[in-house]
Design a binder for these strands. Sequence first.
DNA 1: GTCTATATTTCGATAGAC
DNA 2: GTCTATCGAAATATAGAC
Lengths: 222, 222
Amino acid sequence: MPPPPQAGLDGEPQQTAAAAQPHTGTGAGSTRERILDIALELFVEQGYEKTSLRDIAEQLGTTKAALYYHFERKQDILLELHLRLHALGRDAFEELARLEDGQRADAWPALVDHLIDQVVENRELILMHQRNSNALRELTDTERHRAENDDIEELFRRVLQSPAIPLEQRVRMTCSLTAIVGTLATGDAIFGDVPIEELAELVRVAVRDLLRVPEPSRATSS
Amino acid sequence: MPPPPQAGLDGEPQQTAAAAQPHTGTGAGSTRERILDIALELFVEQGYEKTSLRDIAEQLGTTKAALYYHFERKQDILLELHLRLHALGRDAFEELARLEDGQRADAWPALVDHLIDQVVENRELILMHQRNSNALRELTDTERHRAENDDIEELFRRVLQSPAIPLEQRVRMTCSLTAIVGTLATGDAIFGDVPIEELAELVRVAVRDLLRVPEPSRATSS
DNA sequence: GTCTATATTTCGATAGAC
DNA sequence: GTCTATCGAAATATAGAC
């Protein structure tokens, strides 16, 4: 039974396409990148599920259907943002591998320093990650291809589970990571008036105590 | 134009109601409480948005419509779970108020001890909170009535913003909170084989270093 | 208190013109 | 590459019998 071919309304109002701005063809600020930037912002503000493709298209100044030229599915947008996060951790990858291999826990502080910088520079991406952990999880369920030995979280987990490192130290490492991410990424609500660099430095010093890193003028009494 | 009153299918298959178990009438294990317990579990596993009322009803052994006798809207289930979390923090409320009032940062370690216990005892509730922060946020937007001066998070924020406490100390406090919640609530994936009490004790000791709490056998060299 | 059946809405995704 | 128009599949919520 075909539905009434009545034109005009669908319950889903199509935009009048009034705010279409011109844009460069293909480059760093390509439409694809703009979609990702807008999606990142909306996913942080409203969450992945509550952000409809219509929301994204509206801010972009186009229509829902146009998005499907750039991304096959909505999930692919989220996947692409997830890959941005992975790209970030690539640098830390070698250090992590060294840790996993040589088991030298003294390399950890350097890694922490690096991590703090990256969290500061990519707060929005981190926020997106922790506010949409559920949506991201079912992403890796679908696309297990890339996200198995590839996932940064999985990599961290493997290091933090390494039996060669004493449990106490591993707990301190985990506390460091959660403190860094939690304080620097979500910190805006609390330390909004403090420059982020100052905040990062304070976290750096605090975490040093957490990891029991001996400072120059401090005796290492067991 | 009325739709065809065709019976049978709606695209939404109704359950055959085969697994209806008997239950006590009204008490601690009432239907309402069972709904909340099931919802808590599902919200942690799948997230709030991905958990349909049909999912909850299925596990309960009833139908979707039955849930509406106990809760007017889906959001009310989430709200009730949020209130459970608030009830937890009520105990810590007085200590927090003392901190806010007297500004004595030395009361903080005791509060941390209390917090660790509560996080351990209510991991699932904490997990639900941090995995559904988006859904919870739009909850407080709607029901601003209860959740203004009432919110635990807001209370913590106020303390952590208190200008009477040095910035460095406030950062260390924030790191402590995020480390405790992050490590103990999410820790299952990493420290699944370690007894939670042992883990809690290790976190307790580590956080003590983070807060620079002088231990008995340790000199306080600035 | 729980059921069946249906209303209502919104969303992701597609088809085909331009 | 973007548009209009529409499909089909969910989901929330309601109505009314039992």
